[in-house]
Structure formats: structure tokens, C-alpha cells
Design a protein around this nucleic acid. Sequence first.
DNA 1: GTCTATAACTTGATAGAC
DNA 2: GTCTATCAAGTTATAGAC
Lengths: 196, 196
Amino acid sequence: MTRKREGTAELTLIERARRAQLIEVTIELVADRGYGGASLAAIAERAGITKAAVLYHFPTKAAVVRAAHQHALTALVGDVAGAVEAADVAHRPAAYVRSMVGHLREHPRHTRMIIEAMVHDDGDHDPAARWRPLAELVSAARVARGGSADIDARTTAIIVGGGIDAIVAEQLHDPDYDTAAAAERLIEMLEATLSP
Amino acid sequence: MTRKREGTAELTLIERARRAQLIEVTIELVADRGYGGASLAAIAERAGITKAAVLYHFPTKAAVVRAAHQHALTALVGDVAGAVEAADVAHRPAAYVRSMVGHLREHPRHTRMIIEAMVHDDGDHDPAARWRPLAELVSAARVARGGSADIDARTTAIIVGGGIDAIVAEQLHDPDYDTAAAAERLIEMLEATLSP
DNA sequence: GTCTATAACTTGATAGAC
DNA sequence: GTCTATCAAGTTATAGAC
């Protein structure tokens, strides 16, 4: 308690560094070997410490993986949100597709982490959280172009979202795959449904 | 050896029944709890036998899962191939989408099994096997309509394949989701790229 | 604060009784 | 042919030394 005044900053720095390191190695591990391969022992080994040391910084293994997933997800939505807000309403769906494909291409490990978490997601996750943001951008873009918002924006968003996933997954297998061109083709198909 | 002449048929029948049962419970298990949840113990419990009994009928646990995956995959490709061949060349891409979405909707467990296998696929699998068949249908349809086949059929197939996955995944979360309508919307987006 | 040592349990697989 | 009993190796997590 009395040490806290001058000790907190330094200790918190170490604490944060360790947490950041553990999150980093966990993302690498999940990306390389999948969810199942990211055991506590493997995480500890890559970080150069023991299993117990890992569980000192995080209450449980699930917490480590959750933190790693959150880290990757936060970076993604922050990046995409920035790009979307910088565009005018009529072109926000296209900006969404471009920035999402771009971000996932530039961060392959984050991509695998997010995909793995989506699939292996046991239980409490809202699937609508995935397509709702894009669905709203689609509806808004339709209105901005002088049309009505009554199309099935949900289905459009779901299909486009699936297309994005597939493009990124393909690039994961074939690094030479031109994701930028693929994104533009997906945008073409999307734009056709946006015009009134 | 001497018993074999009259015993083979009966024993083989039992053998096949057991294998079929194990494949069935494994598909259910993977569908419900994912790849990681399908442990040898869980498979044995659901089948009402012991772990050792399972490993009597299959050499290893991986073999059980592989057989289950193969079973689901064979049913899918057989169904889709039949529907595609029944259609004329110009409309085969649409038939592909409809039959695939339809089959996956009618067999939700098979669907999860296939998805789980795709993601958790460690190593030797050809990713092109997924989009190549559709890509060829797309090119052929373009030609049949009097156009050239020089569009990027690969990217089209990848995007449409991702759309199918997303539609089916959505129906898995929301059983009331109208996958037939979604399939038709996806076909609309696809058709726009097929006309010369 | 960090780690050693170990607990408590589950995994896939095998040997041998019946 | 099928099962009991057992195996070694892996898993997460905890208690307590330092």
C-alpha cells in the first residue's frame, strides 16, 4: 500500500509488457497451430517462461486466448471504422470492403486468430454483430443515392462478408493471390445492388 | 479362414453397421461441440461402447474423424454434381448455388462437420479443390451465352463460395433465416457477371 | 512478484483376459 | 470379436518455496 505511490508505474509497465508479450505469442501460436495447438505449455515455452508464470498474469488459459482475440479484433474494427468514416455515405460499403480486406492482408496472424475464434466460438457470441454494421452502411448508401432502403440489406451484408472471408482465406493459402483486385470485383458485385 | 465362407457376410454386416454408427455419432459430436470436443471418450460414450471398442473398428481416432468427414463430403458432392449435370450449361452456376445451399440446409450436422474439417484442416489439403469446380462452371456458362471466358472466374468462384458458406452459417445460428431467398440474391449477383 | 513442484484430470492407444 | 484394465503423455490449475 505504501509502496504503491512510487511503485505502481514501474510495476504496471512490466505487467503490461508481459501481458502484451503473452498476447503476441498466443496470436502467433493460434495462427500457426490453431486453437487446439495453443496449449498453456506451448504459450509458456514461446514466451520463455513457465506455465505457472503465465497463469500469474492471466487468471486462466481461456483468459489469455480471449485477450489475444480481443486484441486482434480491436485493431481490425478500429482500422475499418476509421476508413469508413473518412468516406462519404454513398461509398462507405466499398470503403468497408477495401479496408477490411486490406487490414486482414496486412495482418495474416490476426486474421487466422479471428477466424479461429469465430469458428471455435463456443456459445455466447452474437452472430448479427458480424453483418449488422455493413448492413447499415448498405442501407444508408442506398438512401444517399436517392433510393429506398427496403432491400434485404442483411442478406447483402452476409454475402459480402462471406466473400471477404473467402478472399482473405485464399490469400492465406496463396500469398500471390491478388486480394486488391478481388476486393474490387466484390465491390462491383455489391455496387450493382446499391444503385436505385 | 474356414469360417470365412459362411461367416463373412454376416460379420461384415455387423462391421459395417458399427462403422456407420460410429461415423454418425462422430458427425453429431463434431457438429455439437466442434473438432476439439469430439474426443475418443465422447465418441465411445455416445455409441454406448468403450474407447477400446472404437479403436477396434478404426485404427486411430483420426481415422474415425476422417471417415466422418469423408461421409459428409461424399453426400454433398454427389448431390450437387447431380443437380449441376441436370441443368443446361448456361444455368449450371445457378444450379450449383441452389443445390449447395439446399443440401447444406437439409443436413446441418454435415454442414458443421465439413466447416470444422475445412478450418481445422492441418496440412495436406488443396484449397483450389474448393473453388475450381465452380470456376469451370462459370467459364463454361459465359461461353454458352456467347461471351468469352476471360473473366477472373477464380475470384468469382471464391467470392460466391464464401457467400454460400456465410448464408449457411447464418442459417445455423438463425433457423428461421430464409436461405432460399438468400441463394436467389447471390445468384442475381452472380448472373450479372455471367452475361457477356 | 516469480517460479518449482505437484495435483487432478483427460487425452489417445495398447495388452491381454474372456 | 469385444471388453477390462492399464498406459504414458498431455492438459489446466494450485500450493507453497524463494
